[in-house]
């Protein structure tokens, strides 16, 4: 199976937030009481029960004011930082492209709750069930069950404007390139094509990504490859350093003095 993806065309999003409702409904996530916000941004942040949000940005250019709405969720990296950071390998990148907790019943409960995935994620996506006694890390699952049935994610189905397009990642990349090449209004970049080694979810926009909440100029190398550059030395350090120490200990073997340690130390008395 080809790895799937979603292309988000920011120019087509009207900020209706149907995707958020569809996500909550399909995944049976409880509603959260929000507060009024005059920026169309509420609730603004993802949390353990809110796996996607639509953020709004007001961009002033000369005498023009642009409203832009950007759906945020897990980017489903090709080489996920969260997967590599997990010391029980609880997260996996499935062949469909979804980054999820290992889906089989047997492997479901690997998570220790250490939250290193939250430190590792370059997009700050994984969220923790803080209020639970035995919490899990939660985030968008790319509607993995739907993908397996050949359906598109719930949010994509719900999108009324075609801002979200589901398909094979390679085909979506071609489509994105076609759109930004044929229309000069587009900012010439596909966010997610190369960022941190590429992601399954990709964005195109008519305003610079910097202005709609994305970090530009980020590494094009995947985060797991950074870590591996260091970790791969572990066995060499273990045996190499161990050999050096053994040699040094033998070489400097106690020469003149032989200490009787039992005679040297004693318990002390507290007066």
């Amino acid at each position: 199976m080809m790895s799937k993806g979603v292309l988000v065309d920011v120019t087509r999003c009207i900020g209706c937030r149907s995707c958020m409702v569809a996500c909550k409904t399909w995944n049976d996530l409880p509603a959260k009481k929000t507060t009024f916000s005059n920026t169309w941004d509420s609730p603004g942040k993802m949390d353990a029960d809110t796996w996607t949000v639509v953020n709004s940005y007001v961009i002033e250019e000369d005498d023009q004011v642009k409203w832009r709405f950007v759906k945020k969720q897990c980017m489903h990296c090709n080489e996920p930082a969260c997967e590599s950071a997990c010391f029980t390998h609880a997260f996996v990148k499935t062949q469909e492209g979804a980054v999820i907790y290992k889906p089989t019943v047997l492997n479901k409960d690997y998570c220790v709750g250490c939250r290193y995935c939250m430190i590792a994620c370059p997009f700050d996506v994984p969220k923790f069930q803080w209020e639970k006694a035995f919490p899990y890390v939660q985030k968008c699952k790319f509607c993995y069950e739907r993908l397996q049935e050949g359906l598109e994610p719930a949010c994509v189905t719900a999108c009324p404007t075609g801002a979200l397009q589901f398909g094979d990642r390679e085909e979506l990349l071609a489509e994105a390139r076609k759109r930004i090449d044929s229309n000069p209004n587009y900012y010439k970049k596909i966010y997610g094509e190369k960022e941190y080694g590429g992601t399954s979810w990709m964005y195109i926009s008519d305003v610079p990504f910097e202005q709609i909440g994305f970090k530009e100029d980020v590494s094009q190398k995947s985060i797991p490859s950074y870590t591996w550059d260091v970790l791969k030395w572990t066995p060499f350090i273990f045996f190499g350093w161990g050999a050096v120490l053994t040699a040094l200990r033998a070489y400097t073997k106690r020469r003149a003095e032989v200490h009787n340690e039992e005679e040297m130390f004693a318990p002390v008395e507290k007066e």
Partner: peptide
């Protein structure tokens, strides 16, 4: 750790690509 009863997991399930 949130799921403290799972503390022993890394002994048996090896996420060897993790620094942790």
């Amino acid at each position: 750790i949130g799921r403290w009863f799972n503390f022993w997991r890394p002994f048996f399930y090896w996420g060897y690509h993790s620094v942790l």
